[in-house]
Simulated assay, not measured.
Amino acid sequence: MRCQPRYKGPVYIWSKNKQSCLLCGESTDTPQPICTPCESELPWLGDQCSVCALPLPMAGLRCGQCASRPPAFERVLAPWAYDFPVDSLITRFKHQAKWPLGRLLGELLAQSLQHHFDEGLERPDALVPVPLATRRLRQRGFNQAALLARWLSGPLAIPCEENLLRRTQDTPAQQALDAKARRHNLRQAFALTPKASLRNRHLALVDDVLTTGATAQALATLLRDAGAARVDVYCLARTPKPGEPA
């Protein structure tokens, strides 16, 4: 492009433009701002529970909790374990408003989900982000789950129904609570948008991290009670142990 008459050389050559990896800073030619070595070293989730994605020693098994008390959601899909550097990237995205890091993780999650769809996973009718408490939304300025759902919606061609769920109570932070306290904490904390029609619909909840699954269980139960035929959970990472803070 020769936009400066007195300069005889090209100012910008788009075909030679390279972006830098957001993790190591090296240049990369990949579609996302992450180099191949850094992407391969992410804590990819291996063998896991076929329902809640809890890491397990072998594939194709259910964890004890899902076997004894099947949850209201059908399946959790998460590409990574909540470990370095994904845990740091998620924290910086949520609490420091580092949107490029969240966008990168969202694009990689979209690729992972598309692979599952190509392998036969049933595609949901809509993506439903987990709503954020009003006080926390004011403090943070954005809902990370809603951003992830928007970033997934385009590449996957799945509508995002951002206002289907709302948080009716500002419950205490979940991180310091055990599983039983979390379930009690979430009772009556969520509600559906008035006149929402969910009959026979397949919905996918979107969040950043799954810990005990208490939030996913509460929301999936609400959606199933309202007529949803199936509820899945899409998130970035799964904690290695139930109750581990995220």
Rank of each mutant, 00 (worst) to 15 (best):
R187Y: 13
L61N: 04
E244G: 09
Q144S: 05
L132W: 03
I158R: 02
P124K: 00
T212W: 03
P79K: 05
D208G: 06
Q96G: 11
E122H: 15
K195I: 10
F93R: 01
R2Q: 12
S40A: 15
H115A: 14
G46D: 04
L113C: 09
K16Q: 13
W80D: 06
G102F: 07
N163D: 13
G46A: 08
L137K: 11
D225F: 13
V86H: 01
P245W: 06
V86Q: 03
L89M: 10
V231A: 00
G120H: 07
H95N: 15
D29P: 09
R167V: 08
F73L: 03
W44Y: 13
A78L: 09
A53V: 03
R123P: 05
Q174T: 00
L101F: 11
N185L: 03
L177T: 00
P10E: 14
K8D: 14
E41H: 12
D118W: 11
P37F: 08
R199D: 11
D125P: 07
S68D: 15
D232H: 09
S112Q: 12
W14K: 15
R182L: 06
P57V: 05
L127M: 08
Y234Q: 10
L210C: 12
L205I: 01
A189R: 00
H115V: 14
V128K: 05
Q48E: 09
W80V: 07
L105E: 02
H202F: 11
